[in-house]
Design a protein around this nucleic acid. Sequence first.
DNA 1: GGAGAAATTGAAAATGACAATCAGAAAGCT
DNA 2: AGCTTTCTGATTGTCATTTTCAATTTCTCC
Lengths: 146, 146
Amino acid sequence: MMDQMTIFSDYIRSKGLKNTCQRKTILEAFLASKSHFSTEDLYLKLRKQHPNIGYATVHRTLKLFAECGIASELDFGDGQTRFEPLDINQHHDHLVCTNCGLIVEFTEPRIEKLQEQVAARYNFKIERHRHELYGLCPKCAKAQLV
Amino acid sequence: MMDQMTIFSDYIRSKGLKNTCQRKTILEAFLASKSHFSTEDLYLKLRKQHPNIGYATVHRTLKLFAECGIASELDFGDGQTRFEPLDINQHHDHLVCTNCGLIVEFTEPRIEKLQEQVAARYNFKIERHRHELYGLCPKCAKAQLV
DNA sequence: GGAGAAATTGAAAATGACAATCAGAAAGCT
DNA sequence: AGCTTTCTGATTGTCATTTTCAATTTCTCC
């Protein structure tokens, strides 16, 4: 199994792009980062150690990660695109707390299977899907009863 | 079962808002409209008969519809928020063609049931969800083989 | 029916996330 | 090293959405 660094450098090479130190730095920060961060989150985090890396570069590089398949873009409807490192073996969807913003990942193979059946029913050729459950996390649900 | 007009006027009254002829006009156009339209779609449609209704008013009124539960906001990730009249009895999700933009509604009670199980597993209190399948509709899938 | 308070309207401007621009800098091929 | 191509980052542009604000309309209470 290729790791994410290899996937990215292979992609770079295959497209005739260049290996720059900014991209290397951003890739490292990306892999070390917790999931579900926005461009701004990563930019601010990087700026501490690397004040010379611009917002646009972070943005473009994250797009590259998504293109080559090591990141996926998330949109929870709050007007900010988030990213997460993508592990090809393990697809998951998300529970989002509408109160505190907590994000929990879940997998449910039976839902995946039913999705395929739905697609077949309408003769669609599915490329990707988005499945998010919004509500209150245990902590916020409890707090709201008080 | 209350109809959507009643739900809206009750909501207006309960919030101390006012019944204006613009809101009445927009509500009628909204109910007569096919699903999955953007603010701009409805604005342009209205403008033919009611050139005096502004974009901002259409936008604010659609937000009101969503607030009181007679509309739902859809976001298919193309940078435009869409709306659809919400029929409380009949929840559905969407298939979206990434090539031609065709939108098909589907229902799958077994998925809904599994979602509840997932929520229970994580002790989440679900308020709503988003479930969209993106891919090629039959026509575009066929065209791509050529 | 009409005065007064409060909400609404619509044109225009502001906002904010994202994308594009462009001149100077860096990378990589030979 | 020289040369060509890509990259960078500050800035600007874009576009849907939201806010502003003065004028208008609605609704309540006489």
